[in-house]
């Protein structure tokens, strides 16, 4: 029992590694901000392309969405991070990580937006168009505000996934939270920094996960 606490809940080691982990947390925050913001925008554009009646827009968009839903984010990350330099393309680690996560995640945001837009009945479109509003005006003023409201829990849930996704950046030595914790672990031969990292993730994400559960009460029948 004492051994268990020493290995996993060693307060001394936790407090020593805290400064390192907090700077890791800052990097995590930066990653999250970049990917979430770009993902929300990119996902919206992708979903509009997915729904477009124009084939030349819709088919590549659907292909893009399917491919990036099938590829594991870690594979994508390694591919971009270590593969591109082989082809002579120089890219900063931060940019590689953001690009990989963006490609992966915008596909998921796109699917959420798509479901939201489809959930708005035809009547809303017809009423708005019949008053002389254009397709774009209808989308922006009538459909999207309602659509986003309808799928807010799913958007939130996907955002939680992004935060968890950033832990993968540790694999390519980007010094976010997990990298810092793992580094501290290898120096101290003690798993407590990892437990500390887990606790930090829990503190941030548990409330959000609970919120999402409360809102996602019912499944569509």
């Amino acid at each position: 029992m004492q051994n268990l606490i020493d290995q996993f809940f060693n307060i001394a080691i936790m407090s020593k590694s805290l400064p390192l982990m907090l700077s890791g947390l800052w990097m995590t925050a930066k990653l999250c901000a970049a990917v979430i913001l770009l993902g929300l925008i990119g996902g919206l554009l992708l979903s509009l392309a997915n729904l477009s009646p124009r084939g030349w827009l819709r088919v590549p968009a659907i292909l893009f969405t399917d491919i990036f839903r099938a590829l594991p984010p870690l594979v994508l990350l390694i591919f971009i991070y270590s593969g591109l330099p082989f082809a002579g393309i120089e890219i900063s680690p931060f940019a590689a990580v953001v690009l990989a996560f963006l490609l992966n995640n915008s596909a998921y945001y796109a699917e959420v937006y798509r479901a939201g837009i489809l959930s708005i009945g035809k009547g809303q479109w017809e009423a708005a168009r019949s008053t002389g509003l254009s397709q774009t005006q209808t989308l922006t003023n009538v459909v999207l505000p309602q659509a986003v409201r309808n799928v807010l829990p799913d958007l939130l849930s996907n955002t939680v996934e992004v935060v968890k996704l950033t832990s993968l950046a540790s694999v390519v030595s980007l010094s976010e939270l997990l990298y810092a914790a793992n580094m501290a672990r290898s120096i101290t031969y003690n798993a407590s920094p990892l437990v500390l990292a887990a606790l930090i993730y829990l503190v941030i994400l548990w409330p959000v996960v609970r919120l999402v559960s409360r809102f996602q009460r019912r499944l569509a029948a």
Binding site: S167, L178, A181, R185, L194, Y201, L205, W206, V208
Partner: peptide
């Protein structure tokens, strides 16, 4: 809420 990689490590 926990990233799987954290648990794995």
């Amino acid at each position: 809420a926990l990233p799987p990689l954290v648990l794995i490590l």
